[in-house]
């Protein structure tokens, strides 16, 4: 394990070293490709500016994912309980994913203003689909025999949902939330570039015409680090709240079969 960490650290160090070297001997314009040392310098020098804008973007991403989770959860439960609703709405869900966000984003900004609202709308719109699909799937995949068992215990539809289906769907929800981190980062930047007065996306959009390329790279670096940290946080929460679900572990409910051949 320790050696593996060493190896990946060495690879990263090697790549950064090569990049640094290339900027010095490759003759590439520093406004196109700043050296890693220049990016590090920007990180330190512009820390106030970067932090200020980071807080804005992080808020958009965090809140946006929160809104998406809440909507996806409500939608998944509604669709789970009503087959009619599922037939009516599932195609619309897929349709929602085909909305060309880069085109809609400026319209949303024009409509909702330069504040937080259009960013939340865009982040939530982009994240909704990757969260709702695995959640609906996990709800639907609960073992039919387990539902039968609950019915034989006299459980109502709601009790079966609360005691069996909801916990079984938790890993699906987490899968969706983790996926959505990557989408949310991209969506927040896009939303900011479509019209805003602050945020890292806005900072990048301004830094490039000002030839502050190193600052733009620093902003991107911060954003990536934030996305990785958020992903890690969600993975940690998943391990706390849904510890029975390990990648490659038990996926469905009540897996182990008894040694009697059940013929189905």
């Amino acid at each position: 394990m320790a050696t593996l960490t060493m190896i990946s650290l060495l690879i990263v160090a090697g790549l950064i070293g090569a990049w640094e070297l290339y900027t010095h001997v490759g003759g590439v314009d520093e406004f196109l490709l700043p050296a890693p040392s220049a990016v590090a310098e920007a990180l330190v020098e512009d820390r106030g500016l970067l932090w200020e804008n980071f807080v804005v973007t992080a808020g958009e991403i965090g809140l946006g994912i929160g809104v998406a989770v809440a909507l996806a959860l409500a939608c998944a439960v509604a669709l789970h309980f009503s087959a009619d609703l599922r037939r009516a709405l599932y195609p619309l869900l897929v349709g929602s994913q085909t909305i060309p966000i880069p085109i809609v984003a400026p319209l949303l900004v024009a409509w909702l203003g330069f504040g937080l609202a259009p960013k939340l709308a865009i982040v939530a719109l982009v994240c909704f689909f990757p969260i709702v699909v695995p959640t609906i799937d996990a709800l639907a995949r609960v073992d039919a025999d387990l539902r039968k068992l609950m019915r034989s215990f006299g459980a109502s539809r709601w009790q079966t949902f609360r005691l069996v289906e909801a916990p079984a769907a938790l890993p699906g929800l987490f899968t969706g939330a983790k996926l959505s981190v990557a989408f949310a980062t991209f969506a927040a930047i896009l939303a900011e570039q479509s019209g805003s007065e602050n945020g890292l996306g806005h900072l990048v959009a301004q830094a490039i015409p000002q030839f502050e390329t190193a600052r733009a790279y620093a902003a991107v670096l911060i954003l990536s680090a934030f996305a990785v940290a958020l992903f890690g946080l969600l993975a940690l929460a998943e391990r706390r709240l849904a510890p029975w679900h390990r990648p490659g572990g038990v996926l469905a409910v009540g897996e182990r079969r008894l040694p009697v051949d059940p013929h189905r």
Binding site: L149, F153, V253, G254, R256, L258, V260
Partner: peptide
Amino acid sequence: APAALMAQRDLLLPW
């Protein structure tokens, strides 16, 4: 009368 089932598979909740 109302009957409770013990299924052939144990169907325990993994969590």
